[in-house]
Design a binder for these strands. Structure first.
Ligand SMILES: [Mn+2]
Ligand SMILES: [Mn+2]
Ligand SMILES: [Zn+2]
Ligand SMILES: [Zn+2]
Lengths: 139, 139
DNA sequence: CAGCAATCTGGACTTTGTCTAATTTCCGGA
DNA sequence: TCCGGAAATTAGACAAAGTCCAGATTGCTG
């Protein structure tokens, strides 16, 4: 399969495929995330979407990101208190967080093995396993 | 070794051992965490310390918890946006987080194996690896 | 006791996110 | 095309968690 190329035009299909009614604002927010393929905070999404002229409100950015989450279009990464990142990559993967700079990058899950976890409490099911490697500059 | 029994009296020694000048407030905050051996948020620490009568300010609670962090007396666990938990257990271990109830419990690291992590970026050193198993009630 | 550094404090402030009531947009039927 | 209602968006008030600061208190040491 050829490398996916994200345009505003194919955002509508992506949204429909996740049972999300594609509106102008939703397309812009999805495009911000998927065209960059980066971890963005709500604030950053807000800034990207409103670069040219203010066209999407704070409430809509937050509502839309939560909608994307519920529909499984994006994933949430919590590395910093009070700063949620939204991740367009929903395939299972881990994260490397540089605490000094705040830089967050992906770790491919393919070669990572986690074994020996104890059984879950009765009646519980795993939602996700978050593995975050926190690193800092040596000395 | 016999199971440790935490009292206000031995908090002073614990603090000194971590290069922290033991004051009344610091002893109370350490005692709140270590006598319970639980994960507490700043708010919860605040509530515990001020049960009888108000004696420790919000600023001191936050400053003290950050001081404990820097000195390696406690560890920070970030599972929920905008709610940091402080953990008196600084030995390497992992966490189980029940997303519905907010209940946070320890997973012993002894039998958990994480392998296949890629090499770190040059000049970086691992501060901590956080493994969080997020679970929810089945159906 | 006086001087001085460390610590503590109330309260203003910031950041991130939520909520709500009012408006706008969208769409199907008459 | 026009109308009515549902869905979506909006501004701005509000809330929660945490930071900051200038002034007060504490506890040494000389
Ligand atoms: Mn536009
Ligand atoms: Mn007391
Ligand atoms: Zn990612
Ligand atoms: Zn723990």
């Amino acid at each position: 399969m050829s490398p996916m190329h994200y345009t505003r035009d194919n955002m509508a299909g992506l949204l429909r495929g996740h049972d999300i009614n594609p509106t102008h604002q939703r397309i812009e927010i999805a495009y911000a995330l998927f065209s960059r393929q980066e971890h963005l905070s709500a604030d950053q999404v807000m800034a990207v979407v409103n670069t040219r002229h203010s066209e999407t409100s704070k409430a809509t950015v937050y509502n839309t990101l939560r909608l994307f989450l519920e529909k499984g279009l994006v994933r949430e990464v919590i590395v910093d208190p009070c700063k949620v990142f939204f991740d367009p990559n929903t395939s299972p993967h881990h994260h490397l967080y540089e605490v000094d700079s705040g830089k967050l990058s992906d770790i491919d899950a393919e070669h990572v093995q986690i074994s020996g976890l104890p059984p879950l409490p009765a009646g519980m099911v795993t939602e996700v396993i978050d593995l975050i490697v926190r690193v800092r500059r040596k000395d």
